[in-house]
Design a protein around this nucleic acid. Structure first.
Lengths: 225, 225
DNA sequence: AAGAATATTTAGGTTAGTCTAAAAAATGTT
DNA sequence: AACATTTTTTAGACTAACCTAAATATTCTT
């Protein structure tokens, strides 16, 4: 991740970050509509932006064929992700925010422009490897530790794991977890998966509960046995 | 300083902050050209913005007559100043930036939008009263401690003071001070003021030097005797 | 108080990023 | 394979914030 001293607008950075996330999730060409719904804008706006990003060599875009990040695009996206996640750490560790309160603020902070700042922040936080949601933080070269995690829904019945991440890190979902007394780092045992609706009975150190299929898809565990 | 949940653009905030600073400095109606030169834009752009700010009741503007902040405009400006100066403290105290490196980054951070964030940051820094340049930090109600300071140029010959602030906090000026080994908190004695060009001979604990009239206008001392 | 110089405003244009509506391409269905 | 549906792109408009050039006010000089 070399710093070619080229700056991108906040809008451009947001598109790159979004495309990066969708590539991770789907592993293939990312479609215009997908981007539009994630960024909450219209497909026509996305098309405009994809042309611009393509002209700047940040994505490979062919009409009607979806889009992929170039190496340069991925580097830029990772730089934004790094900033976002470091700021989230700062907010939680230093300013005592709760993990479900930090996303919107980090969305703003991630666009602050100064390599020196972000490296100093990294050092101040003692080079954290994951953010408060359990997502890995890219280092200054764009490398990060991908710890093997499994969706609750994909666990074997009877097995246990440590809750290390969530797919949907929106406010409402995180608040739901709080209400249900589920927190990062909790040990969770999968008691049963209901074949009919794929809802999952789980057990924590302190209580048992049933989570919907939808929730079970969004929770990631690091397998412990 | 009540939080009426109205948001302003970065450009609007920058104009308000600029007008606030110029009002402080000159104590009267602020002219279009003054704003233009401070914000590094064209007079015609300033006119456009003044109309907009006026429509939002942030300034009182009459054609050709200059502009003043309204109460609401002043509150908004002070909120931005507060954020700027708190972030400068953070950068210097926590991230080990030097005081002449923080201005540009704080210019970005001051637009981050979250009252909770700024109050938590304030607490984290233990409610500092001045920023690294010696400028007072408004509290959440917009109030601040104005410690009586005097320009080096206005000191009596033979008197001493503590360097508490600078008027021009641009990078180049601060770098100049560093080079000359002048830092906030230094005790400075005025040896002589040259009548011809208003240059000033000063003495610090460690050395003597001559500063130009220009520099002497920009350095503020708290009088000690 | 008139003319010169300066300051300010107006008029009209540009760019980034958005939008709606219509056209075109791709995909799904029978 | 033909039609219907969905997805994507194009065309044309809008806003915020800026610009240049020209017009108009104000202030300075004599």
């Amino acid at each position: 991740m070399q710093s070619s001293i080229v700056l991108y607008s906040q809008a451009e950075e947001n598109y790159l970050k979004c495309i990066y996330a969708l590539e991770m999730e789907h592993g293939e060409e990312v479609s215009t509509n997908l981007i539009a719904s994630k960024i909450k804008t219209k497909a026509s706006s996305v098309t405009d932006m994809l042309k611009k990003l393509s002209a700047k060599n940040l994505v490979v875009y062919k009409k009607y064929q979806g889009v992929r990040l170039t190496e340069r695009g991925r580097e830029t996206a990772l730089r934004v992700v790094r900033k976002h996640r470091l700021w989230e750490c700062f907010l939680v560790q230093k300013l005592d925010f709760k993990w479900d309160e930090v996303h919107e603020i980090a969305e703003q902070l991630e666009h602050i422009e100064s390599d020196l700042l972000i490296d100093k922040l990294d050092a101040f936080l003692r080079f954290p490897k994951t953010d408060p949601h359990g997502d890995p933080i890219p280092d200054k070269h764009g490398r990060m530790v991908i710890s093997k995690t499994v969706r609750v829904l994909d666990m074997r019945i009877g097995s246990s794991g440590i809750l290390t991440g969530v797919k949907d890190s929106s406010g409402p979902f995180l608040k739901y977890l709080n209400k249900k007394n589920l927190a990062l780092g909790d040990k969770i045992k999968v008691i049963d998966i209901e074949p009919y609706d794929q809802s999952v009975h789980i057990e924590t150190r302190t209580h048992r509960l049933v989570i919907s299929n939808n929730v079970a898809e969004n929770l990631y565990l690091r397998n412990v046995k």
